[in-house]
């Protein structure tokens, strides 16, 4: 929605005050309801579809390929595509770069190891659909999608299944190309349930006045003073902690107290979000029926 100056100032005043009131009467640390499904794309290893109530949806697929490498950072490739945006637009490129950097820096590459020499290489493809039509005329940016995208990536990675390795895992002495079982019933999880490793999540928070707003909606973004994206992994704040432009409007500097407040908010909301995502993973999906 394109907001007028008067509307913007009204929203700003109601958000920035001590008892802030958000446009959709949420609490400051509350998410909008999200819907999500996973493993619905038949021809990839893991997939997820997450959608916001404002219609924006994010489809993520994870595909795995066997490669022989020593360079662990090559093992994850991320590509973000936003509807209506060119592939080489700053938005797509910087979203891809940010997600890829965050994943590589917080990934346990042991789960991708096949043998001493072979690894699975992951291709994470992200497609953002139903971008609002007024995007070009409004002053919000789509960097807040980082949080939606990272949830999609989390679900897709956690739901990814890999074929069972039938050849030996020790090829230090004798070289052998890995071979796999044909039966998908035997497939193993990319991230086993007993594994300590969890994929990371990125939260986007907006700063306005002395308040920290979790999951800002598009009309709130237009009046925010600044935005931050903060990584979260297994109860801890992780890299990246980085400023992002959530609107093209005038912003303001923030102080360290607010930064600390933002980090603490993310630390608090992280666990409930992870639990919600886990419960989605645990609900059984009727593979094709319910969705199409």
């Amino acid at each position: 929605m394109v907001l007028s100056t008067a509307e913007k100032s009204y929203i700003y005043d109601s958000l920035a005050g001590e008892n802030s009131t958000r446009t959709d009467s949420r609490k400051n640390n509350e998410f909008r309801p999200l819907k999500a499904v996973c493993s619905f794309v038949p021809n990839c290893n893991g997939s997820s579809r997450v959608y916001n109530p404002d219609g924006i949806e994010c489809i993520t697929s994870v595909k795995a390929k066997v490669i022989r490498t020593k360079e662990l950072s090559d093992l994850i490739n991320v590509d973000v595509d936003v509807e209506g945006q060119r592939d080489n637009s700053t938005l797509c490129l910087s979203l891809s770069a940010m997600i890829q950097r965050a994943l590589v820096n917080n990934f346990d590459f042991e789960v991708l190891r096949l043998t001493d020499k072979y690894y699975f290489q992951l291709y994470v493809d992200i497609l953002v659909l139903s971008v609002p039509g007024d995007f070009k005329n409004s002053s919000y940016t789509l960097y807040s999608l980082l949080s939606l995208i990272s949830m999609g990536t989390y679900l897709a990675l956690k739901s990814a299944k890999l074929p069972l390795l039938t050849s030996t895992t020790n090829d230090r002495e004798i070289e052998e190309e890995p071979s796999f079982a044909d039966d998908w019933e035997l497939a193993t999880d990319l991230i086993p349930a007993e594994s300590k490793f969890q994929p990371m999540l990125i939260f986007v928070v907006g700063l306005v006045g002395s308040n920290v707003l979790v999951d800002p909606s598009l009309d709130e973004e237009e009046v925010l003073e600044s935005g931050l994206c903060i990584g979260y992994c297994q109860g801890n704040i992780v890299a990246p902690i980085q400023s992002v432009a959530l609107s093209t409007a005038d912003g303001k500097a923030f102080n360290r107290k607010l930064l600390t407040k933002a980090l603490e908010t993310v630390k608090q909301i992280g666990q409930p979000v992870v639990e919600a995502l886990e419960s989605i993973l645990n609900t059984e999906v009727d593979e094709y029926g319910s969705f199409f």
Partner: peptide, 19 residues
């Protein structure tokens, strides 16, 4: 990747100088 590097620099600087 040079393109992605430039994009992340640009978007970070935008958030800085807007304020």
């Amino acid at each position: 990747d040079k393109e992605r590097l430039i994009a992340s620099l640009e978007s970070f600087m935008l958030s800085n100088f807007q304020s």
